[in-house]
């Protein structure tokens, strides 16, 4: 079974993140991801970057991943 920590490591290995949290139960995971690579990209493009980082693991090990994807600027505004 995959742990939330592992999913976090997988994402971090493939995508440089300013902030990253993953919670989950081994099947369903929820992630908040802040990355400079998201700037200027739409939601579909952002999710694709995360799926790319996860590669085959998304098909094989992870049943479902729910995510919030923010650029550093949007993240700063949310914290503001």
């Amino acid at each position: 079974m995959v742990t939330a920590e592992q999913v976090q490591q997988y994402i971090a290995a493939g995508l440089t993140c300013d902030y990253l949290t993953v919670a989950g139960d081994g099947q369903h995971f929820e992630a908040v991801i802040v990355a400079a690579a998201f700037s200027g990209k739409n939601r579909v493009e952002r999710h694709r970057l995360v799926y790319q980082a996860l590669g085959d693991r998304m098909r094989a090990e992870i049943h479902a991943l729910s995510m919030k994807t923010l650029s550093p600027e949007e993240w700063a505004q949310q914290q503001g």
């Binding site: 579909v44 999710h47 694709r48 799926y51 479902a64």
Partner: peptide
């Protein structure tokens, strides 16, 4: 090129999954 279900399409265009 989207690994998850559900997927929404409007007028032939891919919109996203349930988060989006």
């Amino acid at each position: 090129s989207w690994p998850t279900i559900p997927q929404l399409y409007v007028n032939g265009e891919f919109v996203g999954g349930s988060d989006i």
